[in-house]
């Protein structure tokens, strides 16, 4: 695939650090001794079979899930039960969900301006300017006054991306953003994500779209049964998987 911006990461700071992170759902050990470091501007794709804990991993980063052991440090702030810490982290981390989760009772524009107005205390006009700018960037400015129920799935997900971007986050998390879309709408969302990556956003993306990984990822991480099994640059990862389980997984999803 086209050369992804082989940008220089060696001097970049760490924005996300996970050290010895363990999580249990009841007796089930869902995250097992996770160690991970994400540098600023890095684009990471996390893949793996269902139940491997990849969604749980990124949901722990913005505290939608709690981890029981280990440290998670985001942008210098350690994640704990302290509400102030959590809110500070969530202001810098944006998230895009598999089921979009747009607010159905608000217009698209209101969806986007809700958080800037109430969390960042922006004046309404400024928030709307930012919102319209982002809507234009995801190429649906004409839908601003419609309601989410009136949009297609691909449009809704692009709005969800714009909504997360309205808060000017440093890091974007994607939880299987295209898994709930009809095939013909996947491309329009992936295009937006690729553009975002090319502009230098730090991204952590759980997805099955390997084309996307090849296009923009700096690192591909394979998780299975709660462990990070293997991680590598995309070229190496797809060409020479080292672990047996990685080979098995790649064989299953790359047969097309």
């Amino acid at each position: 695939m086209a050369a992804n911006a082989a940008h220089n990461l060696s001097n970049a700071a760490s924005v996300i650090t996970l050290r010895g992170v363990n999580k249990w759902f009841g007796q089930f050990h869902v995250l097992s001794d996770i160690n991970l470091e994400v540098k600023e501007g890095e684009r990471i794709v996390v893949c793996g079979p269902s139940g491997s804990g990849k969604s749980t991993l990124i949901r722990c980063i913005n505290r939608l899930e709690e981890h029981q052991q280990g440290d998670i440090i985001v942008d210098g702030v350690t994640l704990s039960n302290d509400v102030k810490n959590i809110e500070a982290i969530r202001r810098e981390v944006g998230m895009v969900f598999q089921s979009f989760n747009l607010f159905p009772h608000l217009t698209i524009l209101d969806n986007l301006t809700l958080a800037p107005i109430w969390v960042k205390k922006m004046p309404k006009k400024d928030a709307e300017e930012v919102a319209m700018g982002l809507l234009t960037r995801v190429r649906i400015p004409e839908q601003a006054l419609k309601y989410p129920g009136q949009l297609s799935g691909g449009q809704q997900q692009r709005v969800a991306i714009a909504r997360a971007l309205c808060m000017r986050p440093k890091i974007m998390l994607f939880d299987e953003p295209t898994s709930a879309l009809d095939p013909e709408m996947v491309k329009e969302v992936l295009d937006v994500m690729i553009e975002l990556a090319r502009e230098g956003m730090t991204m952590l993306c759980v997805t099955h779209e390997m084309g996307f990984a090849r296009a923009v990822a700096d690192r591909v991480i394979f998780m299975d049964r709660g462990e990070i099994v293997e991680q590598n640059e995309p070229e190496e990862f797809f060409a020479n998987p080292r672990n047996e389980r990685t080979k098995l997984f790649l064989g299953q999803i790359l047969h097309r």
């Binding site: 363990n22 050990h29 097992s32 029981q68 049964r225």
Partner: peptide, 15 residues
């Protein structure tokens, strides 16, 4: 080695 880590039990005061 990866894949041979034992399934640990959750911390006592949590289960």
């Amino acid at each position: 080695p990866v894949g041979e880590r034992p399934q640990l039990a959750p911390p006592v005061d949590d289960s």
